[in-house]
């Protein structure tokens, strides 16, 4: 089995940052994939399938983060999450 590793950098662009609503959307999306997905900020990792982990990573508007997915559907996972980030989670 081929294990892919995908990485991509983002800036949090919605005005409220990764708060409850945005984190919920990340968890909903990440949970559709088998890959292990994490969000990295200043070297600290948060499980992208854990709402509390994302929240407590504390990423306000403007934070630079790195997304890292590991598993056979890693590319698809990163692509799906990219859409979320690009659309600012459907917020301002």
């Amino acid at each position: 089995m081929v294990v892919q590793v995908e990485r991509k950098e983002f800036t949090v662009r919605n005005k409220l940052g990764l708060h409850a609503r945005a984190a919920t959307k990340i968890v909903q999306t990440s949970s559709q994939f088998q890959s292990r997905i994490c969000i990295i900020k200043n070297g600290r990792e948060a499980d992208a399938k854990s709402m509390l982990d994302i929240l407590t990573l504390s990423c306000p508007h403007g934070t630079r983060i790195e997304l890292c997915a590991e598993g056979k559907d890693a590319a698809e996972a990163v692509a799906a999450l990219t859409v979320l980030f690009d659309n600012k989670f459907g917020e301002e």
Partner: peptide
């Protein structure tokens, strides 16, 4: 929705 996710969150 948030509450439902928290319920199954690994930290809890």
């Amino acid at each position: 929705d948030t509450h439902i996710h928290i319920l199954r969150d690994s930290m809890l």
